[in-house]
Design a protein around this nucleic acid. Structure first.
Lengths: 155, 155, 155, 155
DNA sequence: TTTT
DNA sequence: TTTT
């Protein structure tokens, strides 16, 4: 019943991610990712093309991403595409396609600027004594106990 | 310079695909695909969710898809996500995310209804004597000589 | 810490899948999938190439696959690559790469031969009154509560 | 005729890549990539698991990878799985599964150690005046004019 | 045979 | 605007 639906992207956060708590207590993290592509036109002209994709991450996974990722951070995201549909204020039908992130991996390593252990305003919820370098950590998906059912929420 | 960007979807065509010739003589095939997902809410209620994704296929690959795929046909598509941006009639910025298909595989086999050898109104351009069963054929991508540069076109 | 690792394949089962119960009571289903590729040599000669990939599916997902998939069944599998390493009887190091399936979708529909509601020798464990057509069902991954930790097992 | 077959991996080169010229003049670059996965056993024990995957890259793409990637370099590779089969010296059938890389993206950026502009012993073939930072460049696939037919070669 |  |  679930059609295969999978997306892989590498890009950089266009801004710090946002975290919201919604009715029921679930956390949703949302952010936008810039994905670049360059190609050459028939006439030899070279083109730089950027796509911005909106992403959401649910639950614990979203909290982790929110804690460790900031504007400019390079990241690999894996997830599924979803179309949302709603009525505009003018009564017209609107729709948008975005990405529900189910797994990710921070890219670039310890030495790189964009990967703080934790963004300033955050106090780490998981104060574990040993913390593997978050800059290269990957969280999520199957192992992180992601619960795909949480998204029953007015968006 | 090209960030990884890849999508995999299985779904069904919501209508017969359209084929346009654009300035320069390139062909673009466009269609919409329905991708289904079902899940269970916290309260036990089960939900059927559909996403519709707009797809475009360039060149020879687009011609093939147009020739063999029709409304309801099950298909696996592989490609990349692209964001288009434009100004609405009211001057507002608009954007949409769709899929540039770079490879596909028809699903369901010989016996299945939705997979005609060629859709009625079409006269096969490639009148080869031997035609491998199109119902299960996959075309495209690297082998089909897809030329990623053709899309320099007012869309 | 988990590097991105993902595989997508469409192919056909080369034989009926096998199901084993291992110490601890977990179920593992294993099967082999044939994936075809054709291309043309520089000299114009066309080549048909087959790859056979060994797959394993854990837990409930494995039971479902075992129940509904048989030899020749077309299937889309999604999962991760894993390398196993062991010592051969001669003391030499051996290794093999196979696929841990984390999601799948049966392809081809109701009318198609290869997709029995349930393979003969099986008695359906889930005798639900309403059964959505298994021929096109997809199970697994995030929603099916796959538990990625079960594979701590002598293989 | 070409079944969908796609792999995505992030990992690090276990050694400097090798480049060979084969009969006909094509270039093949081969290397091994380490992909890490960690998980927790039922008994709470945490496990670090490594898989090593053999990769090959053809043509110009292979030359580029060979020029810029070295041991320890983090990389995202995209490609397809292939099974090779041969007879061992003892007459037994052998087989192995490896990855034909069709696209890649170097990860980690300018500042990071593992990403030299060009590995020492190499003299850049393409002495272009403007060189986009190779550390984050991605080459290949559709745009790089990859020719999928070159691999008709005794391996 | 192996990377961080 | 929508497929099974």
């Amino acid at each position: 019943m679930n059609d295969i639906n999978r997306v892989y992207l590498i890009g950089r956060l266009t801004a710090d991610p946002e975290l919201k708590t919604i009715s029921g207590g679930s956390q949703v993290c949302s952010f936008s990712i810039a994905n670049n592509r360059s190609y050459t036109r028939q006439n030899g002209e070279s083109v730089e093309e950027v796509s911005y994709f909106n992403c959401t991450v649910w639950g614990k996974l979203g909290e982790i991403l929110h804690r460790y990722a900031g504007k400019g951070k390079q990241i690999a995201v894996e997830g599924r595409l979803r179309q949302r549909r709603w009525q505009g204020p003018d009564g017209k039908n609107q729709s948008a396609v975005d990405i529900v992130v189910e797994n990710f991996q921070f890219l670039g390593s310890r030495t790189e600027g964009g990967a703080p252990e934790s963004r300033p305003q955050q106090q780490p919820a998981r104060s574990s004594s040993y913390q593997p370098d978050p800059a290269e950590a990957q969280y999520g998906g199957y192992d992180a106990g992601y619960d795909g059912t949480e998204e029953d929420i007015p968006f």
